[in-house]
Amino acid sequence: MTIHTNTLACGWLAIILLVACNHKPDVQQTKSGLDRRDFQTVVNGDSTDLFVIRNASGMEACITNYGGRIVSLMVPDAAGNFRDVVQGFAHIDDYTSESSSFGATMGRFANRINRGRFVLDGDTVQLDLNSGQHTIHGGRDGWRGQVFAAKQLNDSTLVLTYVSPDGESGFPGEVTVSVTFAVNQRNELAINYEAQTAEKTVINLTNHSFFNLSGNPANNVLDNVLYVNATQYTPLDSTLITTGEILAVADSPFDFTEPVAIGAALAREPAHPQLQIASGIDHNFVLNTDGRIDEVAARLYAPSSGIALEVYTNEPGMQVYTGNMLDGSRTGKENVPYAKQTAVCLETQHFPDAPNKPDWPTTVLQPGETYTSTCIYRFSVIK
C-alpha cells in the first residue's frame, strides 16, 4: 500500500489543528490559574479584560478593569511556594451577575453615608440608597460596577481611569479618577489614587480586597494575628452608621495595639454591644500614623502559611472587617464557598459618614484641587 506524503501531511495538520482548538495557550494562563479570556466581554458597551502585573521574584497580581478589582494576588509563603491570598472569582460573569465588593475599587465614597444624605454649601445632597436606609460604597452606580479604561505601562504597573458623571448615584460634580497598581521588588502592591472634580463634591476611595493569608480560602481567619496602629476607633449605631464618637480601644475587643489572634480578640468580650451590632468586627480605626506613609498602619500574619502582610497609608483611618457577612452562598476560585470569617479586609480610608461629621477629617474636594490617597500592601514571611 502506498501512502502519499501529501495525505500524511494533511493528517498531521488536522491533528495539530484539533489539539490547538482544544488547548488554551499557556500565554493566557496566570500563576493563579486564571484565564484572561474568561474576563474578556462587553459590559454596558465597554470592554472588560484581565491584566497581569508581576515583579522579577514572581509576585503576581491579576486585576480586571471591571470595578478596578484585584482578582488574584500570588505571594510566596514561608516554604517558598506561591499562594493566592485574596478571595475572588475565576470568571467575569461571577462579578457582573451579582453585586459584590470582592477586590473592588470603592468610590465615589467608600463605606456608609447616613440616610444617603449630607449638606454641601447649604444644599442637601440626596444619594440613592443601596444599604437599607443608607448609602454604601458609592450607591447603586458605585465604581465597583463600572468599567475603567486600562493602560498597562509595563510588566509591573497598571493604570485604570474612570470619569464619573455629574449626578452619578446623586453625587455632585464630574470626577475624573486614576488608580495606579504597581508591584515592586519589596513584594509590595502599591495602590495610588488621584482624582479631580469639576464641581465641589466629596470623595473617599479604598480597595476592598478580602485577604486570606493561609492561601486556602476555606480556612477561617480566627488564628490570624492582627496588629493595628490605633488607640481609638469609631463605634456604630444599630444600623452600622458611625455615631460620631471616638472611643479608646483599651479594655475592648478592638484593642490590637499588641498583636493578638482575631479569634482571641473576639472572645475577650463576645457580648460586647459593638460586636453584636456588626456580628464581629466591621469598624473604622483611627490610625496613629498621622498620614506618615512610612509608618505601619496594620500587620496581619497567618501562622499556617507564614505569610505576613503590612499595610501603609496616608489615610487617617482603616476599616477592619472580619468577613462577618460571608455566608457560603458565593463560590469563588477553585470552587470554594466563601464562609463566614474566612477573610479579613483592611480598607484604608477617611472615616465613614465623614460628610455628616464636620469635626472629622474632611472628604470635600474642590475644583482645581487633586485628591490623592495611597495604600501599600507589603508581603513578607515569618519562618
Rank of each mutant, 00 (worst) to 15 (best):
T5K: 14
L8A: 08
G11K: 05
W12E: 09
W12G: 13
I15F: 12
I16G: 05
L18V: 12
V19E: 05
C21W: 12
P25N: 12
L34I: 02
D38Q: 14
Q40C: 11
L50P: 02
A56V: 07
G58C: 08
G58T: 05
N65S: 06
I70P: 02
L73P: 00
V75F: 04
V75L: 11
D77T: 07
A78I: 01
D84C: 00
V85D: 09
Q87N: 11
F109W: 06
N111Q: 12
R112S: 07
R115E: 15
V119G: 03
D121W: 08
T124G: 03
V125W: 00
D128V: 01
L129I: 13
N130A: 07
S131D: 15
G132V: 03
Q133E: 13
T135F: 02
R140Q: 13
R144Q: 13
A150L: 08
K151C: 11
Q152G: 10
N154T: 01
N154E: 09
S156A: 15
L158G: 03
L160V: 03
G173K: 10
T176D: 07
V183Y: 00
N184D: 15
R186E: 15
I191Y: 05
A195D: 05
E199T: 12
T201K: 04
V202G: 02
V202A: 02
T206W: 02
N207R: 08
F210E: 05
N229S: 13
D237L: 01
T242V: 15
G244M: 12
E245G: 09
A248T: 12
V249K: 01
D251S: 14
P253N: 11
F254K: 05
E258S: 14
P259D: 05
V260K: 13
A261W: 03
I262Q: 04
R268T: 04
A271S: 13
S279P: 01
G280M: 03
H283T: 02
N284M: 03
N288G: 07
D290R: 13
G291H: 03
G291C: 05
R292F: 00
D294A: 10
A298Y: 04
P303N: 10
I307G: 03
I307K: 03
A308W: 04
V311S: 01
Y312A: 07
T313Q: 11
N314L: 06
E315T: 04
N324P: 01
S329P: 00
R330C: 00
T331N: 08
G332Q: 12
V336R: 12
A339G: 09
A343M: 10
A343P: 00
C345H: 03
L346R: 08
E347I: 00
H350N: 13
K357A: 07
P358V: 07
W360H: 10
T362R: 06
L365H: 11
T370L: 10
T370H: 08
S373M: 09
C375L: 13
C375K: 11
Y377R: 07
R378A: 14
S380K: 07
